[in-house]
Amino acid sequence: MFQKFIPTIIFIIVALIFSVVITIIFSVGPNIVIVPSNSTNSVILNTTNPNPTPTTITTPKLTPTSAPKPKPKPAPTPVSATDSYTLSQIAQHGDSKSCWTTVNGGVYDITAWIDQHPGGAQAILGMCGIDASSAYNDQHDGQRRPTDELASFKIGTLR
């Protein structure tokens, strides 16, 4: 009786292994940078891994096709990053016209990020004017790129 299902179980296991392999390829693959062997820094870096392990490789001489394009950074807010704000001050900037939030003790003006967020504007609008630490940590905790992006919007600290 049970033997009838063995091929099906094997199929499911093999298919899931394939799925995991594809996941790893797509999660790690785009972040691998191959540097020509004549470069002094021949390393592979996973930019999304919070604890990247550099791996030295040697490759034939490669001609870089194009340099990575720098992302346009939002205009800096004319406020000192050392300023401190209260939650009530942050709450006054709770809409799409002026969106401030606090995450893990830092205060950020993320107005310019609303339309740029890869996960959609709605997720950012939900952070405006409030302490969004738990929402941010649930979604992006330990991820290097979101942390770097968020840091670029810092205007001060929470008082």
Binding site: F18, S19, V21, Q139, H140
Partner: peptide, 29 residues
């Protein structure tokens, strides 16, 4: 990413991007 429930992210301890990738790979296979 916005379709990934927060509960799934916190339960799996994986990033939302990896979960989307796995979901896509599952549907492809």
């Amino acid at each position: 990413l916005s379709f990934v429930p927060d509960s799934v992210v916190s339960f799996s301890h994986l990033s939302a991007t990896i979960l989307v990738h796995f979901n896509g790979a599952f549907e492809i296979v």
